[in-house]
Design a protein around this nucleic acid. Structure first.
Lengths: 228, 228
DNA sequence: TATAGTATTTTGAGTTATCAAAATTTCAAT
DNA sequence: ATTGAAATTTTGATAACTCAAAATACTATA
């Protein structure tokens, strides 16, 4: 098949991300959701998905939804790889802020060659995750996605490390940045209050941060590593 | 006006470069030349140029050719700025070879934001020229193009510095690289032989290099600076 | 100045990706 | 089972860009 257009890459990426977000129970992404994620009307998504199905990149079940084929999944993973490496590069090498790199990467991911991506990968030391903690697929398109707990499920009081932020909204990211809540940061959940819908986190330099539960669910953590 | 598409940017850039290549006497770029530079059939160029003219980016004289308006010239210069900064960045920061950055920059120049370009510009120390010695326009789109002599016109025997290579062909660039003929390099023209159609250059470490006259015309040099 | 040859423009058609709005299907609730 | 609301698909258009090939304009030269 010919090179996928940016549009095709974006559809595959959106389907991939919708599938992941939905969890393993709903494997089919409904057209409405896909169209919403891409900012197109549903009819457009239907049309496009039919052509993706003809290319063997997705399975399409009318009125039910789409799902990536193995070929589509690989392509999507490679787009994600480009996106995440570019984000990390922009932050680490060019000193751009966490909140502003997403849109930039969104465009550059379709223009960067494999060669360039590999240089970036090497320069960054073959990193496992991008600035949000999202795992970076390797050049064959495979990726390990560790299962983390969230601020809502981790044990109270234990020291944990913030590992992943599953929301790209730049206002949210700016808030996290200003609160010192970036992946890698050691923190501890002090309390949860369902009635008040908040979680209290003790962060860098014993600073106390209060976060709504919906936001807290987007912050993933891992138990602090014991120095081996 | 809305953001120019990559296509529009490419047309403007090609017109700009054709105008420069032609020198100040022929200000109008004929359609055939433009179409050739862009790899489209002449009819396509005609159509596109008419819409560029409607946008006020070019002046179009049927059967005669196109010329950039001041607005078109500014836009073209900004595309060139992006292209050249990206090329230099890829060479300096990512260690890519001189010969391979052109195509990469060709795609990235349409995807990089002004913000990113400015970061790159700052990181590189607001450079005046790209790896080929092509001058880099500033963020307002203005550029100084020093007039250099070439290997064909510079004084024989005097030490000069290679300042600019006016050919992007990657095989040619690889040849130059392997001969140590990169901008910045101190050289000296030993002899010219019109009959044999060649120029003999003494390069790095007294190495002797023989170049055809057509190629020699593409190498621009400046008198070696006397240490002030 | 007639004309042959070249360059340019025009015409008609195709591709990709999109939207608006009409038609259809699905599904949950009666 | 029927129906009404919501989601999806279909249909008909549009925009941007392109090509092939026919029509036209220019220009050099004889």
């Amino acid at each position: 098949m010919a090179l996928p257009s940016s549009t095709v890459e974006n559809y595959l990426k959106a389907i991939y991300q919708a599938q992941s977000a939905q969890g393993p129970e709903h494997r089919l992404v409904p057209m409405g959701r896909l169209a919403g994620a891409l900012g197109v009307v549903p009819g457009t998504a239907t049309t496009m998905v039919k052509t993706l199905a003809e290319s063997g990149l997705v399975d399409y079940e009318p009125y039910a939804g789409v799902r990536l084929t193995p070929a589509g999944e690989k392509l999507a993973a490679l787009v994600l790889r480009r996106h995440r490496l570019i984000e990390l590069f922009l932050v680490k090498v060019l000193g751009m802020s966490w909140a502003e790199v997403h849109d930039e990467a969104e465009r550059l991911e379709h223009a960067a060659s494999d060669r360039l991506i590999d240089r970036i990968d090497a320069m960054l030391g073959r990193p496992a995750a991008d600035p949000h903690g999202d795992p970076i697929p390797d050049s064959s398109g495979s990726m390990v996605t560790p299962e983390y707990q969230t601020l809502l499920t981790c044990p109270l009081g234990s020291p944990v490390v913030l590992t992943r932020v599953t929301d790209q909204d730049s206002a949210f990211l700016r808030f996290l940045e200003s609160s010192g809540l970036k992946p890698g940061q050691a923190i501890r959940v002090e309390s949860r209050d369902a009635a008040a819908d908040h979680v209290v986190v003790r962060g860098k330099r014993e600073r106390q941060i209060m976060i709504g539960m919906r936001a807290a669910a987007k912050l993933q953590v891992a138990p602090t590593e014991q120095t081996a």
